[in-house]
């Protein structure tokens, strides 16, 4: 279970972006979160990925209550959640080749040995072919870069996936391809998914259940 219970978060404690947001995802379930721009759903996604400390509320991953955030979160908890962000340009280190970009989590967690094999396998599933793996982020298109970012999120085989408007910058065919990659991974590993976005048609077709932002946030 990925539980977010009455979470209040923001970037200034006096004026939080939202108050009392609750959301629960069962193991293997795909939940879509729909909401207008600027309502705070990306912030909630960051909270769910343990990347932003909420001002109040409780977060639990697989029954373990989260007490630390970002670097203070236990490593096995952090790596249990894979994240894909909206803008691939911003979420890829411009100095790393795509091969290193995808392998980076393996190296950071001391599993360097399996990097080559795993990168090759993921590149195939994510549709990164030929010399793309040897290129740097500025030499590939947004779609190709987002495929690499998705591969990076999957490389540690997380139990949960958080996709924060993963396909907002992409065209329909790339969107379909990326969603297919996520779904194939989920079928294989039974991972849960939190997909955030404002494309109702996409999320309703993709996810088992979609939540409206207004229903998640209990008005305080």
């Amino acid at each position: 279970m990925l539980e977010l219970d009455t979470v209040t978060a923001g970037y200034d404690p006096r004026t939080p972006v939202f108050r009392g947001a609750s959301l629960t995802i069962a193991p293997g379930e795909a939940v879509g979160l729909l909401g207008p721009s600027g309502c705070g759903k990306s912030t909630l996604a960051r909270v769910a990925a343990l990347l932003h400390r909420p001002d109040a509320g409780r977060v639990a991953v697989d029954g373990r209550e989260v007490r630390g955030w970002r670097h203070r979160a236990p490593r096995d908890l952090r790596t249990a959640i894979g994240v894909v962000f909206q803008q691939p340009r911003m979420s890829a280190d411009p100095r790393l080749r795509l091969r290193d970009l995808i392998a980076e989590p393996l190296r950071a967690t001391g599993r360097r040995a399996e990097a080559d094999e795993r990168v090759a396998e993921l590149a195939r599933t994510a549709g990164l072919t030929g010399d793309l793996l040897g290129r740097r982020p500025h030499e590939v298109s947004d779609g190709q870069l987002q495929r690499a970012c998705l591969a990076r999120a999957l490389v540690l085989r997380p139990r949960w996936l958080v996709c924060d408007e993963m396909t907002a910058m992409l065209d329909a065919s790339t969107t379909a391809a990326l969603v297919a990659v996520v779904e194939a991974y989920r079928r294989e590993h039974g991972a849960g998914l939190l997909a955030v976005g404002h494309d109702r048609v996409l999320l309703e077709r993709w996810c088992d259940r979609t939540e409206e932002w207004a229903d998640c946030v209990r008005t305080a």
Partner: peptide, 22 residues
Amino acid sequence: SRPYVDAAISGGASRWRVTVRH
């Protein structure tokens, strides 16, 4: 505050790793 640092943290990188690598 770049998302790629967030992604590195989520990928299990330590503070030292983020500093040295990114």
